[in-house]
Nucleic acid binder design. Structure first.
Lengths: 248, 248
DNA sequence: TTGTTTTCTGCGTTTTTTTGCAGAAATTGA
DNA sequence: TCAATTTCTGCAAAAAAACGCAGAAAACAA
C-alpha cells in the first residue's frame, strides 16, 4: 500500500473512531509499526491528527476539551433562561449552589424583585450582584468542601421558610434511583429544601441524566418541574414525563 | 485506554460532578490508583483541576474571590502576624471582613484549632481554606456592598456567642472620635461584636489612624488591644497607650 | 531501457515513557 | 491518640519511540 493511501486510510480511521493505536494500524495495513509512527508523525506535522504515546487522536478531541466547557456554559444558560420564567415578583426562592445556579443568578432580569434564600456562599455572591433581589444567607457551620452552611440550625431555618420555589442544581438524576449526590451535607440541605418548598424545580444538563451517585436525596416523583437544555419533547425526557413531572 | 483519553475522561467527570475520587476512577477506567494519581497530578499541574486528598475537584468553583491586588499587603501581613499570637487552641473568635482580616486568615498556623465566627462572606471563604479551624457563618439578609449578613437575626446570634476574641478590621480610628465607619450595617454588627467579646482587638494600618468617618461604633476605651504595622513604641501610638489600650 | 538518485521501509539497538508494585510516609477521621 | 486510607518514592518490567543503517522501491534522466 502506498504512503498516500496509508495516510488516507489512517485519517479516515481517526476521524471515524477518534482514536487509533499504532499497533492496531500496523496489523491492519500490514506494515511495521515504525512506518505507522512515521505516518502519524507526518500527519501530526500537517496538523491533521494529534499524535500521542501509543497512537493518535482526532483533532476534535483536544479542542473538544476546551470548547466543551463553553458548550456546557451554553447549555446552562439555556437552562437558566427557562428557569427564570418561573420566578415572579415577590416570590421567595430557595436555591442550592452549583454552576447552573450561578448561571441562573446572572440571567435574572434586572427589574425582578424577589427574595433568594441560600446556604451556598458562592451562590450568595452571585445573587449579590443583582440590584433588586434580596439575598438571605442561612447561617451555620461552614462545610469547607462545598462552601455551604450545614447543621441543625441551617436545616431548621430552611424548614421555617415557606418558599414558593426551590431550585436544585443537581449532580445526578435517574428515573429509578431518583435524585442523588455525593456529599452528605449537601444531601441534608437539599432534603430540607424539598420538604419545605411549594414547587421543586430540578435544573440539570442532559448529560447528568440517568446517572447516579452514592447518596439518595429523593425519588423523582417528589420533583415538580425538570429543566434541561433539551426541548421538552426530547426522547430522553419522556420517562420523566411519564412519572408526572412537568418538563420545560 | 490511552493516557490522553483518560485525561479527557477524568476532566469530563470532574466538570460534570465537581468531584471525583481516585478509587472510583481507578475502578471505572480499570487502571491502578497510582496511574490515576499521576493523571490527576498532571491535570492539576496544568491547572485544569484541583487535586485534593482522595481525588480532585473542579476548579471552576473555587477560583475567585481571593488575592486581588490589595493595598499595602506587606503592612497587613505584619499586622496579621502580630494578631495571630493572640489566638490559641480552642478559642472562639469573632471577626469582621476586610482585607486585613483576609490576611489574618492566611497566616493562621496550620495546626491551630479554633472556631471562627463571622458575618463576612469573603472572610468565611478565607477561613474555609484552613484545615483545622471551624467556621461559623452568621446568617441573615446579605448586605450587597460589604458582603456581610446584617439584621436583627444576625445581631442577636452574635450576642448569643461568648467569644474570647473579637478582631475588628477597621476603617477609621481616632483618639477623640473613637472607632468610626461609613456603613450603617457594618456599624451595627461591629457594635454587637464588641458588646459580646471578652477582648476587642482592632487591626489597622497606621494610615487609617487619626481619621474619622460619619458613624460612630465605640469610644477608644472600649478597645482592649490595638495592632498596627508600627512598632509598639512608635510616637503615633502613644496617645492610644495613654488611654489604656494595649499596643502590639 | 538502463543507470543514478532519492525516497521509503524494516530491523536491531538504545532511549524514553508508561505503568504497576512494595514499602515508607503522610493525611484523615474517630 | 490510633487505625485506616491515601500518597509518595524508588524501582522494575513492559511498551513505545527514536535512531542509524541497509536494502528495496520509486522517480528521474539520458
Amino acid at each position: 500500500m502506498l504512503k498516500e493511501e496509508r495516510h488516507a486510510y489512517i485519517l479516515h480511521q481517526v476521524n471515524l473512531h477518534n482514536k487509533v493505536l499504532s499497533s492496531h494500524l500496523s496489523e491492519q495495513i500490514q506494515v511495521s509499526e515504525d512506518t505507522i509512527r512515521r505516518d502519524l508523525a507526518e500527519l501530526a506535522q500537517e496538523g491533521k491528527i494529534i499524535k500521542v504515546h501509543g497512537g493518535a487522536l482526532s483533532n476534535s478531541f483536544h479542542q473538544g476539551i476546551t470548547s466543551q466547557d463553553v458548550y456546557a456554559v451554553k447549555d446552562k444558560k439555556t437552562i437558566a433562561l427557562k428557569a427564570v420564567e418561573l420566578i415572579h415578583d415577590g416570590m421567595f426562592v430557595l436555591t442550592t449552589g452549583g454552576t447552573t445556579i450561578a448561571e441562573l443568578a446572572r440571567v435574572l432580569p434586572r427589574d425582578l424583585q424577589a427574595t433568594f434564600i441560600t446556604v451556598s456562599l458562592p451562590a450568595a455572591f452571585e445573587y449579590a450582584n443583582h440590584p433588586n433581589i434580596e439575598v438571605i444567607v442561612i447561617g451555620d457551620k461552614l462545610s469547607k468542601g462545598s462552601k455551604i452552611t450545614v447543621g441543625g440550625e441551617a436545616i431548621s431555618k430552611i424548614k421555617m421558610i415557606k418558599a414558593d420555589l426551590c431550585f436544585l442544581g443537581n449532580n445526578a438524576i435517574d428515573v429509578e434511583d431518583g435524585l442523588t449526590d455525593n456529599d452528605w451535607d449537601v444531601v441534608q440541605v437539599k432534603r430540607a429544601m424539598i420538604s419545605t418548598a411549594k414547587k421543586v424545580v430540578v435544573l440539570t444538563i442532559s448529560e447528568k441524566m440517568n446517572t447516579s451517585e452514592q447518596l439518595k436525596i429523593c425519588d423523582v416523583d417528589e420533583i415538580d418541574i425538570l429543566i434541561t437544555e433539551l426541548p421538552p419533547d426530547a426522547k430522553k425526557l419522556q420517562p420523566y414525563k411519564k412519572k408526572g413531572i412537568q418538563i420545560l
